[in-house]
Design a protein around this nucleic acid. Structure first.
Lengths: 337, 337
DNA sequence: CTTGGCAGTTGAACGTGTCGAGTGCCAATG
DNA sequence: CATTGGCACTCGACACGTTCAACTGCCAAG
């Protein structure tokens, strides 16, 4: 399958089908693209493409639509990703730079990506595996309830309210904080759970139960802090492509509410030569997403996290790839500054 | 309209239509409910109900379906809200009690409510308007970046990373923290913005610019902290009731992504005698939600925040009301402990 | 006020015929 | 040997007509 004209025909079929959502026949193809050959020749090429499983005819006498394999060939064939329009790039710059907090940047970014691609956008909150403990705070809330705050060097803040077995005052908490910090400060987050175990032995026996409770909370927070999260935006766009999900968009919406599924989805993708990963239909392992495609790429320091869009298999891949890549680049730049 | 039989007929029509999604005729009604009268009598009653605008016939010769006004009568007519099943109540107790953090409780609760009602669930994060400043933390992140953390007595934690005009070390930050706390500690969150303005004058002129930046960040955090948020769950359930939204579920999904809309939706509801608020169709001001209904109730101290479900106008009101009320009660109990 | 019956209405379902788009194949051609 | 024009054939979409079942509304009788 190296015949350049056949590749061209495949490309034309994908483009037309993506736009019209209707099977495309040989004649219609001729009208919209000047391929320099007659309809009959196209038909022969189409027959070959069908033999190779790249396109398929829904019914005996109707136009062809691309198969997953066809989309895959189409995507692999894309030489260079076209840049975004000036207006789009300006919108990206304006919105991203207008945010303060890291979280705010991510939220605005994912909404923006959803808007420009008209699809569901996903962004993984960056994980700093080498983050260390920057600070620990204990705050008495009254009635024995205490707020435990763990601040990581990455800027991530985790909090939890716990109930201490013995009620303690602010000054005691301040002392405890010193003990905790002496052991944990500047230590890797990943070591917190282990180190926290030994802390109760450092204090007076009377305080040990309270400290044990706090240590457990810190372990949980540290674990939490190293758990990935994924933000989504534009789920409403899914409903618009209702017709593209033969059965229903329900399973897709359900999958979008399951962080675990999305994380696995991202982790299973492999980036191609352009640094963009595309998962088409059943290439995505998760059953609910076998009718969907994902376009994603890494961003940030060492591409530690991913950003991407999710839509129907019949999606405009070039546009999505361009948007995802452009947004990821801007985002990386902002985060690095 | 005080004829008890007619009310009974209305109730039967609503129940049947909610279950079958099909216009209900006089004969079908007789088969499913023993009303003690003949079909002809029912027909007369139906004619009266139609005159009053409580039901309507989609086409000349077809069964009747309830109008919004009909649903409203139906809901108002509900005498007592039936309790949940033992299994359901056990599930609520288990899930809610298994959470640590306040936020975790809310997240689990809203997911649970979505599951048992098979609808979209919404929960407003409680607002403590009388919350005070419990703690302020400044953490140097390097490269002049500083993390500002504001902890409220409500347990809410707001954070933001800022860029200081002059780079300052940890020990200086500790001093600044003392100054900030001396002014703001235990003050109402609502006063932070005003009080923070005067702080730069309390420090040496050299530090003033840095402190001004911090003060601005604190103002923003305080403002943020008194902004309501709404968590949602079960959006996938919307897709299942696709047929109940004549046009499309797109506008509804869009509305669900807009916090402002949801807040206004909640704020416009009025609770009835049972303490449950029901907004039916166009009773909801927001255009995208005029085909939807909301069932909600307050929870927590003084019913400061609301929890509820959103679904098609053709929803099972008694079940939804029961679930919302039960979940709200459990939640209030947990939060109070 | 209720009831049985009857005429009238109407959307849904189904079968039929036509139309257009598209394919596959084949012989002819450069 | 790839390409081309032509032709027969297939099949879904659409429009149309018919039938069917479910209702309603009304009326006269109980």
């Amino acid at each position: 399958m190296t015949d350049p004209r056949r590749l061209e025909v495949l490309r034309a079929i994908v483009e037309d089908y993506v736009q019209s959502r209707e099977p495309v026949g040989s004649r219609a193809l001729l009208e919209r693209h000047n391929l320099g050959v007659s309809a009959a020749t196209i038909r022969n090429d189409m027959a070959s493409l069908e033999d190779e499983g790249l396109i398929v005819a829904p019914h005996t006498s109707s136009g062809r639509i691309p198969t997953e394999k066809g989309y895959r060939h189409f995507v692999d064939q894309i030489g260079d990703v076209k840049p975004l329009s000036v207006a789009e790039r300006r919108a990206i710059a304006a919105l991203i730079e207008g945010s303060h907090d890291v979280n705010e940047v991510l939220e605005n970014t994912v909404r923006l990506l959803a808007t420009i691609t008209q699809q569901v956008a996903l962004i993984q909150v960056p994980q700093y595996s080498n983050a260390t403990v920057r600070h620990i705070e204990l705050v008495a809330l009254g009635a024995g309830q205490t707020l435990v705050v763990l601040i990581a060097s990455s800027g991530r803040v985790e909090q939890r309210v716990i109930l201490l077995p013995t009620s303690v005052g602010d000054e005691v908490l301040a002392g405890l904080r010193q003990v905790l910090l002496s052991v944990l400060n500047a230590k890797p987050i990943s070591d917190v759970a282990r180190l926290a175990l030994g802390i109760p032995e450092l204090v007076s026996p009377g305080m040990a139960p309270a400290v044990r409770t706090i240590a457990e909370a810190l372990s949980a927070l540290a674990r939490n802090s190293s758990v990935d999260r994924i933000l989504t935006a534009g789920t409403a766009n899914l409903a618009r492509s209702n017709l593209d999900f033969p059965l229903s968009i329900t399973p897709v919406l359900e999958a979008l509410e399951e962080q675990v599924v999305l994380l696995r989805l991202f982790s299973e993708l492999e980036q191609d030569a352009h640094g963009i990963a595309v998962g088409i239909g059943t290439e995505n392992q998760y059953i609910a997403l076998t009718e969907a495609s994902v376009v994603a790429t890494g961003y940030g320091h060492g591409e530690q996290a991913m950003i991407g869009v999710l839509g129907p298999t019949r999606m405009n891949y070039p546009t999505s790839m361009a948007a995802v890549r452009a947004v990821a680049r801007y985002l990386s730049r902002i985060l690095a500054s």
